[in-house]
C-alpha cells in the first residue's frame, strides 16, 4: 500500500523567541515493511537536510533558529510504501542491546498493581501472552480523550482506567518489561479505517521482542498488531524518549503547540492526498 502523509507541527510564541532549538525525529526509516518515497521535512519552509541515526537507529536532526521567531512551522510530508508483515517489524539497520528495553522510566515504572496486572495476562508462550496483554490493556483502560496528560504514568493510567494511545502504549511496555520482555514505545502515523480511532495527531503504540520473530508491533488502542496502515517514525523507552519533536526556546513566554496529521492512501500514480476527518 502506498500512503501519503503530511504532518504539521506549529509552535506559537506570545512574544518573539530569541532562540529556538528543535530536535526532530521525523524521518521514517526504510524497513522491511515500509519504504519512504519523496520524504521531506521543512522548518519554516527551509528543508532539513541531515538526519543521523540516534542510539536506537532512528533518524534525528537538530535545527537552530535565531533572531526573533514568532512561529515555527515544521512539516514532514511524503509517501511511504508499506507492506503488511503480520506485526513483525524488521530490517533495522542497527540493533542495540535488547536488555536496554527492560529499563523502566519515570513514566513506565510499575507499581504493585501494574505488576499484578502484567502477571494476569495468560498465554502459553511469549507471543500469545503479549497478545493477551494487549487485549487486557484495551479492556482495562477505556479510550477517553483528555482524561490524561503527557505526564501521566503507566501506574496512574491503570488506576484511573481511562486514557489515550500514549497511555495504552505506556501501560503495555511497563507490563511487558515487568514480565521480563524487552519492549519499547513507538510513535508514527496510522491511516484509520472504519471503526478505528481516526487521528489528527501522531499515533503511539508499542513493540515487544519475541525470540525467533524479532520486534512485534502491538497497538493496544485498536487491539491489533501493526499492519500496512502504520508508518513507524521512531521509538524509545517512553513517550518522552521517543518524542518526534522536542523543542527548547529562549526568550519567549507562552507557547501554544498544534499538531496536525493528514494521511491517506495514494491513488495509483498520483501524489494526491486525502484528508481523514473524524
Amino acid at each position: 500500500m502506498e500512503l501519503t502523509v503530511r504532518h504539521q507541527t506549529t509552535y506559537c510564541y506570545e512574544t518573539p523567541a530569541s532562540q529556538v532549538a528543535l530536535l526532530l525525529r521525523l524521518q521514517p526509516a526504510a524497513l522491511d515493511g515500509q519504504v519512504p518515497r519523496q520524504w521531506a521535512v521543512t522548518v519554516n519552509d527551509t528543508p532539513v537536510q541531515t538526519f543521523r541515526p540516534n542510539a536506537y537507529g532512528d533518524g534525528e536532526a537538530f535545527v537552530h533558529l535565531r533572531a526573533s521567531v514568532e512561529e515555527v512551522l515544521i512539516v514532514a510530508s511524503g509517501r511511504v510504501e508499506t507492506r503488511d508483515q503480520h506485526g513483525v517489524v524488521s530490517g533495522f539497520r542497527q540493533e542495540g542491546p535488547l536488555p536496554v528495553f527492560l529499563r523502566q522510566t519515570h513514566l513506565t515504572r510499575p507499581d504493585a498493581a501494574v505488576t499484578a496486572f502484567a502477571h494476569s495476562a495468560g498465554g502459553t508462550d511469549r507471543l500469545s501472552r503479549l497478545h493477551a496483554l494487549s487485549a487486557l490493556v484495551r479492556d482495562r483502560v477505556g479510550y477517553c480523550a483528555g482524561s490524561t496528560s503527557t505526564a501521566s504514568t503507566a501506574a496512574e493510567v491503570l488506576a484511573q482506567g481511562r486514557g489515550v494511545c500514549q497511555d495504552h502504549a505506556h501501560l503495555f511496555v511497563s507490563a511487558a518489561r515487568a514480565l521480563g520482555i524487552p519492549a519499547r514505545y513507538v510513535v508514527g502515523y496510522l491511516m484509520a479505517q472504519a471503526g478505528d480511532r481516526a487521528l489528527r495527531e501522531t499515533h503511539a503504540w508499542a513493540e515487544a521482542w519475541v525470540d525467533g520473530l524479532g520486534w512485534i508491533g502491538f497497538d493496544a488502542t485498536n487491539g491489533i498488531c501493526v499492519t500496512d496502515h502504520y508508518v513507524r517514525l521512531c521509538g524509545g523507552l517512553d513517550a518522552h524518549d521517543a518524542a518526534p519533536v522536542r523543542g527548547s526556546v529562549l526568550g519567549a513566554t507562552t507557547i501554544a503547540i498544534r499538531a496536525d496529521v493528514m494521511i491517506g492512501e495514494a491513488e495509483p500514480g498520483a501524489a494526491q492526498q486525502t484528508q481523514q476527518q473524524q
Binding site: N54, A55, Y56, G96, P97, P99, V100, R103, L237, D241
Partner: peptide, 28 residues
C-alpha cells in the same frame, strides 16, 4: 558489544538497569 556481559563476568542488569548507563550512548 558488551563482551564482558556475554562472558558472564558482570551481571547484565548491573549495566543495563544502571542509572548511570546512558542508552543514548549506545553504538557511538
Amino acid at each position: 558489544r558488551a563482551e564482558i556481559l556475554r562472558a558472564g563476568l558482570i551481571p547484565q542488569d548491573l549495566v543495563y538497569q544502571n542509572e548511570a548507563f546512558r542508552p543514548e550512548m549506545i553504538g557511538f
